[in-house]
Design a protein around this nucleic acid. Structure first.
Length: 269
DNA sequence: CTGCTGAAC
DNA sequence: GTTCAGCAG
C-alpha cells in the first residue's frame, strides 16, 4: 500500500468513525430518555445571553454575538445547541461573507487570506447542520476569529465535538465562546484583526434537574493535554473579559456556580 | 470533523 | 468572482 492510499484509508476511517460514534451515542441516549421518561427542555436562548462590553449585540437566526470593532471580531458568540439540532446532513461549504448587520462594519474575509491563520468558527458549522440557512449563516465574518490551524483542527475541534456529545447526553446545552481580546496580540490583514492569545467556552445546562456550568480557558496553541485540564471557573473568564455571563440567573445560584471550577457534573468519558 | 490552496471557467 | 479538485490532521 502506498502512502497516498494509506492516507485515504485513514481519512475514511476518521469520517466513518466520527459518524458511527455520534450515531451510536445518539441511539444510546434515545434509549436512556425513553427509560427515564425525561422531558424536553424549553427554549432558553434569550435567557442566557451574556452582557456586552461594546454595546453592539447582533441577533442572527442561529446565534447571537457581541462585536468588538477595535479587534474586528466578536467578543462572544452565543447559541443554544439543542439535541434536535444535531444532524448528519452535509452542506456544501459556502464562501465567507461580511456580516452586514454589524453596524460598525464587520471584518473583510480578505484579512485572513494568506495570513497563515484559519478562519476559525466561533459557532461551529458542525453545530448548525440542521438547515442550510443556519449552516451558511455561520460563514459570516462576525463569527470567525484567527486561529492556528493546528489548534483549530486539534484541541479546539476536540472540545467542539465534546460539546456535541454533551448536547446529546444532557438534551441540549447553551454555549458562549470567543477569544480573549486583551493584552498584546498579533494582528492580520489591512484591518488589523487581532489574534487572541487565549480562547474560551462557557457552557450552561439547566435541564437535568440542577443547573450546571463548565468553562474552558485554552491557550492559542494545540496541545495533547486532556480537556479537563483547561477547566476554570466562570468567574475567571469574567475577570479576563469583563463579560457577565449569566446575569439573569438567580443571584445565589449564579454566584455559587460561577465560582466553581469543578467538572464533576460533566461526563468526560 | 476542522480547514487552505491552485487552477480553470 | 465562482467552482472544482486536491490536500492535511
Amino acid at each position: 500500500m502506498n502512502k497516498r492510499t494509506l492516507y485515504s484509508v485513514i481519512a475514511i476511517i476518521i469520517v466513518l468513525g466520527v459518524y458511527a460514534y455520534e450515531h451510536f451515542l445518539g441511539e444510546e441516549e434515545k434509549a436512556e430518555i425513553v427509560s427515564e421518561g425525561q422531558t424536553t427542555k424549553t427554549d432558553t436562548n434569550e435567557y442566557f445571553l451574556p452582557t456586552s462590553t461594546t454595546g453592539q449585540i447582533v441577533h442572527h437566526e442561529g446565534y447571537s454575538l457581541s462585536y468588538n470593532e477595535e479587534h474586528e471580531q466578536s467578543e462572544w458568540v452565543a447559541y443554544e445547541l439543542k439535541k434536535s439540532h444535531l444532524s448528519n446532513t452535509n452542506h456544501k461549504r459556502p464562501y465567507f461573507e461580511i456580516d452586514k448587520s454589524v453596524k460598525t462594519g464587520a471584518a473583510n474575509w480578505r484579512n485572513y487570506k494568506k495570513s497563515g491563520y484559519d478562519r476559525g468558527h466561533l459557532c461551529p458549522a458542525g453545530d448548525r447542520r440542521y438547515s442550510k440557512s443556519a449552516h451558511d449563516e455561520t460563514f459570516l465574518t462576525s463569527n470567525i476569529s484567527p486561529q492556528e490551524h493546528q489548534f483549530n483542527a486539534g484541541l479546539w475541534n476536540t472540545l467542539e465535538q465534546k460539546i456535541r456529545y454533551w448536547a446529546r447526553k444532557y438534551d441540549g446545552v447553551f454555549v458562549v465562546t470567543g477569544g480573549v481580546l486583551k493584552g498584546n496580540m498579533k494582528t492580520i490583514g489591512d484591518e488589523d484583526v487581532s489574534v487572541p492569545n487565549q480562547f474560551y467556552k462557557v457552557l450552561i445546562d439547566n435541564n437535568t434537574g440542577k443547573t450546571k456550568m463548565i468553562a474552558f480557558l485554552i491557550p492559542h496553541t494545540d496541545s495533547d493535554r486532556p480537556l479537563y485540564e483547561f477547566v476554570v471557573s466562570v468567574d475567571e473568564i469574567e475577570a479576563l473579559t469583563g463579560v457577565d455571563f449569566f446575569p439573569a440567573l438567580e443571584d445565589s445560584i449564579e454566584t455559587k456556580l460561577e465560582a466553581s471550577n469543578s467538572y464533576q457534573d460533566w461526563d468526560f468519558y
